[in-house]
Amino acid sequence: RGITCLDHENEKVNMYCVSDDQLICALCKLVGRHRDHQVASLNDR
C-alpha cells in the first residue's frame, strides 16, 4: 500500500527531501514547500 504524504493525503511518498530530512511526494517537489529543496529518489537510497 505504501506510505502516504502528510501534505497530500492521496499521494504516496516516493522522494526524500535532503534539506528537511523528510519523506515527500511528487506534488511536494513540484508545487509544494519542498520545490526548491534538494531531494533524492527513494530508489537511490
Rank of each mutant, 00 (worst) to 15 (best):
R1A: 07
R1H: 09
G2L: 05
G2M: 09
G2A: 07
G2I: 01
G2T: 10
I3Q: 06
I3A: 07
I3Y: 13
I3S: 09
T4I: 12
T4R: 05
C5R: 01
C5M: 02
C5W: 01
C5E: 04
C5S: 02
L6I: 15
L6V: 12
L6D: 14
L6Q: 15
L6K: 15
L6E: 15
L6N: 05
D7N: 08
D7V: 06
D7I: 11
H8F: 00
H8I: 00
H8A: 02
E9H: 09
E9L: 12
E9Q: 12
N10Q: 04
N10T: 04
N10G: 06
N10F: 01
N10L: 08
N10D: 09
N10V: 03
E11K: 03
E11Q: 08
E11V: 02
E11G: 05
K12P: 14
K12V: 09
K12E: 14
K12A: 09
V13I: 14
N14V: 10
N14P: 03
N14C: 06
N14E: 14
M15L: 11
M15G: 13
M15C: 15
M15T: 08
Y16Q: 15
Y16K: 15
Y16L: 08
C17R: 04
C17S: 07
V18F: 08
V18W: 06
V18I: 07
V18R: 13
V18K: 13
S19R: 10
S19L: 09
S19Y: 04
S19M: 09
S19G: 11
D20H: 02
D20L: 00
D20S: 02
D21Y: 01
D21V: 01
D21N: 12
D21M: 04
D21K: 12
Q22G: 07
Q22N: 04
Q22L: 06
L23Q: 14
L23N: 15
L23A: 14
L23W: 10
I24V: 13
I24H: 06
I24D: 08
I24Q: 11
I24P: 15
I24K: 08
I24T: 08
C25P: 03
C25Q: 00
C25N: 00
C25E: 00
C25L: 00
C25T: 01
A26P: 11
A26R: 12
L27P: 05
L27F: 14
L27Q: 15
L27H: 10
C28L: 00
C28G: 01
C28M: 00
K29N: 15
K29D: 05
K29R: 13
K29Y: 09
K29T: 13
K29W: 12
L30P: 07
L30S: 15
L30T: 13
L30V: 11
V31A: 14
V31P: 12
V31I: 09
V31K: 14
V31M: 08
G32V: 02
G32F: 00
G32R: 01
G32E: 05
G32M: 00
G32K: 04
R33V: 09
R33W: 03
R33F: 00
R33E: 11
R33S: 08
H34S: 03
H34G: 03
H34C: 03
H34P: 01
H34W: 00
R35E: 14
R35I: 15
R35C: 08
R35Y: 02
R35W: 01
D36H: 07
D36P: 04
D36Q: 05
D36T: 06
H37D: 04
H37E: 04
H37V: 03
H37R: 02
Q38T: 06
Q38F: 01
Q38G: 06
Q38V: 11
Q38S: 03
Q38Y: 07
Q38D: 14
V39R: 04
V39Q: 09
V39D: 04
V39Y: 03
V39C: 11
A40D: 12
A40Q: 14
A40S: 13
A40H: 04
S41E: 13
S41L: 07
S41P: 13
S41D: 13
S41Q: 13
L42W: 06
L42G: 09
L42C: 15
N43Y: 14
N43G: 11
N43A: 14
N43R: 07
N43Q: 10
N43L: 08
D44G: 09
D44Y: 04
D44K: 06
D44E: 11
D44W: 02
D44M: 06
D44Q: 05
D44A: 07
D44L: 03
R45E: 15
R45T: 10
R45M: 06
R45S: 13
R45Q: 12
R45I: 10
